[in-house]
Simulated scan of single mutants.
Amino acid sequence: MNSLSPTMLIAALFFGTATQGFAVAAGTESNAPRQAQASPSTRTVFIKLDDISFSQKSIDVRPGETVRFVLKNEGALMHEFNIGRVSLQHEHQREMAALMQDGTLTPTGKAKSIVWRERNTGPGDSTPPSYPEVIEATHDDPNAVLVEPGTTKEFVWTFADATNLTFACTLPGHTQAGMIGDFVMR
């Protein structure tokens, strides 16, 4: 029986523990901002992602407001739209750098790998004993969404009374190149 490679196993364990940490960090306070569901009254903000910039550097929001972000990546690189306080953004940057370094993420998307699945074969069965399955890396951060080149994604967020929130692309070098903006509570 073929099993997961050590790299895939480590990546799966990392994602499982990292997403639990993000969920705890993002949602422990009752007034913490959070990902939400859109409603008919949800305001929509369109943001173009380019290499290497956001079309907006500042977005006005009201406490308690739910905003649907429509994110269109017109660049050649993958980007992330991550909402959080600066300290959490820095922590997430280190985690994203590790994912790039180990090959889980690439400059243009999530890595894909082939896993061999065992087939249940009976006596005298002439079918091959296993078959390949393509597995795409996952990114389950409740504060963020990855946007591959040429794609458009939506991300809905409810803003509480919290201040000092930023949005950033935390892929290596992107924040440092200027892919960061502020939310201004009005």
Results as ranks from 00 to 15, higher is better:
S41H: 11
T44F: 05
T44W: 07
V45H: 02
F46D: 15
K48N: 02
L49S: 00
L49K: 00
D50G: 14
D51W: 05
I52W: 07
S53C: 05
F54L: 06
Q56W: 05
Q56M: 12
S58F: 05
V61F: 03
V61W: 00
R62M: 09
R62F: 11
P63L: 12
P63I: 13
G64A: 13
V67T: 05
F69Y: 11
F69P: 00
L71S: 04
K72I: 07
E74R: 08
G75E: 02
L77A: 10
M78P: 00
M78G: 01
E80D: 04
F81I: 02
G84Q: 05
G84I: 04
R85L: 01
L88V: 14
H90N: 12
E91K: 13
H92Y: 13
Q93F: 05
Q93R: 14
Q93E: 15
R94H: 11
E95V: 06
M96E: 03
A97T: 13
L99H: 09
L99N: 05
M100R: 08
Q101H: 08
D102P: 01
G103D: 04
T104S: 08
T104Q: 06
L105I: 13
T106R: 00
T106N: 01
T106Y: 01
P107E: 14
T108Y: 07
G109Q: 02
K110W: 02
A111H: 10
I114E: 15
I114V: 15
I114P: 02
V115L: 07
V115W: 03
W116I: 02
E118C: 08
E118A: 14
R119S: 14
R119Q: 15
P123G: 13
G124K: 02
D125K: 06
S126A: 09
